[in-house]
Design a protein around this nucleic acid. Structure first.
Lengths: 337, 337
DNA sequence: CTGTTAGCGCATTCAA
DNA sequence: TTGAATGCGCTAACAG
């Protein structure tokens, strides 16, 4: 359809049609108390007649609030992040905030551009799941006074953060394997520059030690939280002589990569190798064999992040950073002996 | 961290520090030609010193363009829509537009609020995948002159639209089944109030007729494009006496529902029943048995939508509505005999 | 080459 | 109960 070039009606157009001042129109629309019923009526008619829709940009400039919040996630195709976004968005929109969902695609440059753009658009708040940690973004966030809450990953103790207990999650996974008789357990770890990558890595080692076990040299691989990365490291793990009896994938995407790698190597779960995954896998129960995983309450975490952000934007809440830690759950399916 | 209450520096602060007028600062930042090198230098230093970041809201108000576009999808958890969004976002951000991704969660009310909000925020363009068709949203879009392009679903011939050839997709699926000897084929259809739902439904009937077959009464079920809906109808199909030999699910989510339903009924794919799905299923190749599906180039469709939208926003392109139709591909896996 | 001026559309004092 | 005036932060004539 041809875009028609007539300009949109403004508050003045409404005022003219209703025979009042534009200030009156403004009142009628936002706080109609103490207005003559007849005036209100005329304004309403004029609004409908012209199809007037307030210009939020002008309004934001005037009131110095955008009533918008940014949500930045590293990968919208990862169901975990999508669920977090959904939870946050639900709470925020309930409270009249509109949200801008940004997918940084695990790319620090893209992420940086988003943050700058969001700040220039003067969002009132930010829910942020960063990619690999870098000083620059952290500086940006700190310099800017926009309230920000982190989810899953974070950039330092000085920020509000919603996360899960990575130690207990990894403990659940390792214990499960050890209890089933696995001794030689491999790890496909996420990047150590991310909080969950690092914490799960450390937990893996410490929990193993608690069982008087230690990872075999070469059986711990540092990867990047992607399907491809998980695939690559798992293949290499399998091919190496004396590969592990079981593998823990440190997140869902690497778990998918691991399944594919195992399948492509012509060996079998759980007969030839065990596999368990940190974080739920979409359709994890439909895969053959169904995968044992550790789950997070992703939607709830998003909601909680939003609630805390709302507090911050309202200037409420403690002045110290808030840390909310959820407990993961073990979902036992059949990917181990 | 406590949000600090000092207000952000404005262009005037920069001007004062650099000893120039704010108009000069504006020029230095946007179009620095014909400025004395020394002036430019002073401005740049002042900008850095203050950590000045232009207020995009004020800028938008002045230039009457927000340089933002909205992307509204019915379900961000559906990988098809997520991929479309990703494709669109890539093209748009390349061209300096920022995008607001909105998830209507298949809820017309939520969708309506998003559209209104986006228009009030004066987005320069809109990429829109509507929920079930309703007159109201259509009216909103038409009344507003904001360029809009639809993907997959649409609201009428008068709009730009990127879609796939639903007839040939369904033809691929039906032919595949017929060639393998299935005669009694059931359909779990999407809602007929959506374009793909309707077109696939009609294609199902016409392609069957081409083979001199007709669907058995009760073997065509109208559902709602959700996992639950697909589950429900498939269970009912299986339980009915003389259920179909094979089922076509009209989209990916209903396909997942169908798999679960078949599994929960204690019967087997492909031995007891065949299943093929319109649209790729995430991990469709990891499910047991791997699912035969028809695929769309989702990212490319999103990109094309963005390109057309860019044209529209620039006032370029034909004045008649543009329709781009992609051809689906059959991905044969092993969910039929 | 740079400063002055005038709005963009709106909310909000302050008077009347 | 309503109107007039002001300014949010910025860009874009128009002068000089």
């Amino acid at each position: 359809m041809k875009s028609c070039s007539e300009t949109r009606p403004t508050i003045k157009d409404v005022a003219r049609l209703a025979n009042v001042s534009h200030a009156t129109v403004s009142r009628a629309l936002s706080n109609p108390v103490g207005l003559a019923a007849s005036t209100l009526d005329r304004v309403k008619h004029a609004v409908k007649e012209l199809g007037y829709s307030p210009n939020q940009i002008a309004r934001s400039l005037k009131v110095q609030k955008s009533h918008a919040v940014g949500i930045v996630v590293p990968d919208i195709l990862n169901p975990f992040f999508a669920h977090v976004a959904r939870g946050a968005e639900r709470i925020l929109s309930e409270r009249g905030y509109s949200t801008t969902l940004c997918d940084s695609e695990e790319t620090p440059e893209k992420e940086g551009r988003y943050i700058v753009d969001l700040f220039q658009r003067r969002v009132d708040g930010l829910i942020f799941i960063p990619t690999v940690e870098r000083g620059e973004v952290k500086k940006l966030i700190k310099k800017n006074s926009t309230p920000t809450v982190f989810v899953d990953r974070f950039l330092g103790e000085e920020f509000d953060c919603i996360k899960i207990n990575n130690l207990s999650g990894m403990s659940l996974l390792v214990s499960h394997l050890v209890n089933r008789g696995y001794k030689d357990i491999g790890l496909v770890s996420g990047p150590l520059e991310t909080l969950p990558g690092r914490e799960r890595f450390e937990a893996f080692n410490s929990v193993l030690a608690r069982f008087n076990l230690a990872p075999k040299p070469g059986h711990v691989r540092i990867s990047d939280f992607t399907i491809e990365g998980g695939y690559r490291e798992t293949v290499s793990l399998i091919r190496s002589s004396g590969g592990p009896e079981a593998i823990i994938a440190s997140n869902n995407l690497m778990g998918i990569g691991a399944i594919k790698a195992i399948r492509d190597s012509g060996i079998n779960i759980p007969d030839d190798i065990g596999l368990v995954v940190f974080d739920e896998i979409l359709l994890g129960d439909l895969i053959q064999p169904p995968l044992t995983v550790v789950t997070h309450p992703a939607v709830e975490m998003g909601k909680e992040a939003a609630r805390i952000l709302l507090d911050r934007m309202a200037g409420k809440g403690p002045s110290s950073p808030r840390l909310v830690v959820y407990e993961p759950k073990l979902e036992i399916r059949k990917s181990t002996r």
